[in-house]
């Protein structure tokens, strides 16, 4: 199967920083309770500190304000999408855009069945499919910078890393088996920005997933290599103890755009 793909969106984080939206002054400065727009929550402007970077890259990337779905897209919502767009049905999708696992937990082309409850997040969808879904409703996938910016919040404060117990809870998710079938999307506790289930339900596609710089040979990965094996300075890895961050970077670099993975779903974003 052809496995090359177009690296759309990998520069987007940088662009966002440059474009500079003149909008939603309240969002950019204070947090006036999570505003919502049809199932979305506003993520105020902020910064994202990449986990792994080279010396010429900035330590911080600014992220303009954006709307983010409160919860991942559900099976029911995705079903409506494939009903309207037959070429994304399981039986009709091009193998270039989705591998053979695509929606394989559904009972049929237009039938969910017991392994894919209506309210559970849709999983086993490729990046191409997730993007097509988002485009169909005039949304898009969040970038890594946006997604990480939203997920860096704890439940009660904007920096989850500083919230007692929060990092441990996030890490614990990795060591708990995935429940079958998945619980309903949106059942998790909302984070500081009003988004739910970012860290403890399923993995989520991001638009520029293929820029995550982990090769799989983690010790060969730029900064990690220098830090862990050569004891060099701080350039490269922001925080070697951010295990959950490494797992996300690792996960993103282990997938390809046509992959469908049993615990990988998505949610959409929108620029104001």
């Amino acid at each position: 199967m052809a496995r090359c793909f177009i690296p759309v969106g990998w520069q987007q984080a940088g662009h966002l920083a440059l474009v500079g939206f003149a909008l939603l002054a309240t969002l950019a400065t204070t947090r006036a309770g999570p505003a919502t727009q049809a199932g979305m929550t506003a993520i105020p402007a902020g910064t994202y500190r990449p986990l792994i970077r080279s010396q010429d890259e900035p330590a911080e990337i600014s992220v303009a304000p954006f709307w983010l779905d409160i919860r991942p897209v559900t099976n029911a919502e995705y079903l409506a999408f494939v009903q309207a767009h037959p070429r994304w049905r399981r039986s009709q999708v091009s193998p270039l855009f989705a591998d053979s696992g695509y929606l394989s937990d559904w009972a049929g082309d237009l039938e969910l069945g017991p392994s894919a409850p209506v309210g559970a997040p849709v999983v086993r969808v490729s990046w191409f499919a997730a993007r097509a879904y988002a485009r169909a409703i005039d949304k898009r996938l969040p970038t890594i910078a946006e997604w990480e910016r939203a997920a860096a919040a704890g439940f009660t404060q904007s920096e989850g890393a500083k919230e007692p117990g929060f990092p441990a809870q996030v890490l614990a998710w990795f060591t708990q088996p995935t429940p079958q079938p998945l619980p309903a999307a949106g059942s998790g506790r909302p984070n500081y920005f009003g988004a739910r289930d970012l860290l403890t339900l399923v993995w989520e596609w991001v638009d520029d997933f293929n820029t995550a710089m982990v090769t799989g040979e983690s010790r060969g990965d730029s900064g990690l290599d220098r830090n862990l094996f050569c004891g060099a300075g701080a350039a490269g890895i922001r925080d070697p103890s951010d295990f959950a961050g490494f797992m996300r970077a690792g996960f993103r670099s282990s997938v390809r755009a046509s992959y469908s993975v049993p615990n990988l779903g998505f949610r959409c974003a929108q620029s104001p």
């Binding site: 696992g101 996960f251 282990s254 993975v261």
Partner: peptide, 10 residues
Amino acid sequence: AASSFTAPGH
């Protein structure tokens, strides 16, 4: 290691 990096279900 690099050649064997494998996503879940792959």
